[in-house]
Computed example of a mutant assay.
Amino acid sequence: MKKSLLGITLLALLAVLSGCASASGSGKAEYVYSFNIQPAATHKFHTDVVAPWAEYVEEQTDGRVKIEIYNSGALGNLATAYEDIEGGLYDIGYVSPSASTSTPAYPLTLGDLPFAILDPMDSPKVLQPFIDEFMQDEFEDSIPLAISATDAYQLITTEPVETVEDVKNKKVIVSGKERVQLVELWGGVPVTLGIEENYQALDRGTVDQTTYTAIGANGFRLFEAAPYLTKVDIGATTLLFLMNERAFDKLPDDLQKQFEEDFGPKLSELNSKMYSEGTADALVQFEKEVADKGGRVIVPEGETLAEFRAPAGQIWEDWVKNAEKKGYDNAQEMMDFFTETLEEQGIDSPVD
């Protein structure tokens, strides 16, 4: 009888200790969320942004929340990211508004307008006020966690591009209506392919050029297939980080508050900082990688650069017309707010 009572006492004590261990983070997580991203685990977006963020969330919640990262678009590609997150295919992900123009994220394509936002550190300063002003009631089955951007897009090419003339009649991979229009106005032939198809298309000669960021180009080793980079700073690509609403609603109030007030801003901070601070190093790395192939980084200046930027005015005007056709009667108001915010943040607009 005494042995039995002792055994019961020990089991009870172990149960209490087990509960304490779980609460302190050494036990099984209460909430496990999937985070789908397009780059591989070797890409800086994984190593410097998503992985540290996942660790931060786990630490700050004492292990109650665990983030499982799925690389290389394992759970879905960027083209369907908005629908996939809303539908619960995965819990957390990011949307490129320019790749999701049939969704409520469309107004954020303003952030992808040519030569608008060049530094990702400026993206949340400009676009978060825009979301607060125009998009508070737009998201039904997802929760906006953070807004950020990539580093500016450049031209990565198989042959050197010194001027706009070197783009004419060349096949150029590009995404987003406004950037497609830019390549057309340069005289190039736009080709729409997924990020993961860039390398193969350049390597096989299916295309001549691609528009992509320096950090991204290094991450996908595009320099092996296209040893020239022309630094024209077309503009950053907006990244809207979303969380499935049902997954968010499962969290107790204290954890919801952490996601809204801490984890979302932290994700934006990590992403913006990595892409902003990594650009210069990425350009140096690209040039180093292509040195033995005769490749180089080309930096247009003066009138040459102005010629690359010249189509911006028409594209910005057309954005308002296209948005109105989509049913946004306040498109001009959105554009005015966007340009005014750029000015308030000390960001030069390419449009007079």
Score class of each variant (00 low, 15 high):
Lys3Gln: 04
Ser4Asp: 05
Ile8Gly: 02
Thr9Tyr: 09
Leu11Tyr: 07
Ala12Ser: 11
Leu14Ala: 12
Ala15Arg: 02
Leu17Cys: 13
Gly27His: 05
Lys28Thr: 14
Tyr31Ile: 02
Val32Gln: 07
Ser34Leu: 00
Phe35Ser: 02
Pro39Asn: 09
Ala41Gln: 13
Phe45Tyr: 12
Pro52Met: 07
Tyr56Cys: 04
Val57Arg: 03
Gln60Thr: 06
Gln60Cys: 07
Asp62Val: 02
Asp62Lys: 13
Val65Asn: 06
Lys66Leu: 10
Glu68Cys: 07
Ile69Cys: 00
Asn71Tyr: 15
Ala74Gln: 14
Leu75Lys: 13
Ala79His: 12
Thr80Gly: 05
Glu83Leu: 02
Ile85Leu: 04
Ser98Ile: 14
Ala99Arg: 14
Thr101Glu: 15
Thr101Gln: 11
Pro104Asp: 10
Tyr106His: 06
Tyr106Pro: 08
Leu108Val: 06
Thr109Cys: 06
Gly111Gln: 00
Pro114Ile: 06
Ala116Lys: 12
Ala116Trp: 07
Leu118Ala: 10
Met121Gln: 10
Met121Phe: 04
Asp122Trp: 06
Ser123Leu: 11
Pro124Val: 08
Lys125Thr: 10
Lys125Arg: 13
Val126Arg: 07
Val126Gly: 08
Gln128Lys: 09
Pro129Met: 00
Ile131Phe: 05
Phe134Asn: 07
Met135Val: 05
Gln136Val: 13
Asp141Ala: 04
Ile143Tyr: 01
Ile147Tyr: 04
Ala152Met: 06
Thr158Arg: 15
Glu159His: 11
Pro160Arg: 12
Glu162Gln: 15
Glu162Phe: 15
Glu162Asp: 15
Val164Thr: 15
Val164Gly: 08
Val164Cys: 11
Val164Asn: 09
Asn169Leu: 15
Asn169Arg: 14
Lys170Gln: 15
Lys170Gly: 09
Lys171Met: 13
Val172Arg: 10
Val172Gln: 08
Ser175Lys: 03
Gly176Lys: 09
Leu185His: 09
Val189Glu: 00
Val191Met: 09
Thr192His: 15
Ile195Phe: 15
Glu196Val: 14
Glu197Cys: 00
Ala201Lys: 06
Ala201Cys: 04
Leu202Pro: 05
Thr210Trp: 00
Thr211Gln: 09
Gly216Cys: 08
Ala217Val: 09
Phe220Ala: 14
Ala225Gly: 10
Val232Trp: 02
Thr237Ser: 11
Thr237Met: 06
Leu240Trp: 01
Pro252Phe: 08
Leu255Asn: 05
Gln256Tyr: 02
Gln258His: 03
Phe259Trp: 09
Glu261Pro: 07
Pro265Phe: 01
Glu269Met: 07
Asn271Ser: 13
Asn271Cys: 12
Glu277Tyr: 12
Gly278Ile: 01
Ala280Phe: 04
Asp281Arg: 05
Asp281Met: 04
Val284Asn: 12
Phe286Pro: 09
Gly295Pro: 04
Val299Leu: 08
Pro300Tyr: 00
Gly302Leu: 06
Thr304Tyr: 03
Leu305Arg: 08
Ala306Thr: 11
Ala306Pro: 08
Ala306Ile: 11
Gly313Asn: 13
Gln314His: 08
Glu317Ser: 14
Trp319Cys: 12
Trp319His: 12
Asn322Cys: 07
Lys326His: 06
Glu333Phe: 05
Met334Ala: 04
Asp336Cys: 00
Asp336His: 02
Phe338Trp: 00
Gln345Glu: 12
Gln345Met: 10
Gln345Tyr: 03
Gly346Lys: 12
Gly346Glu: 10
Ser349Phe: 05
Val351Ala: 06
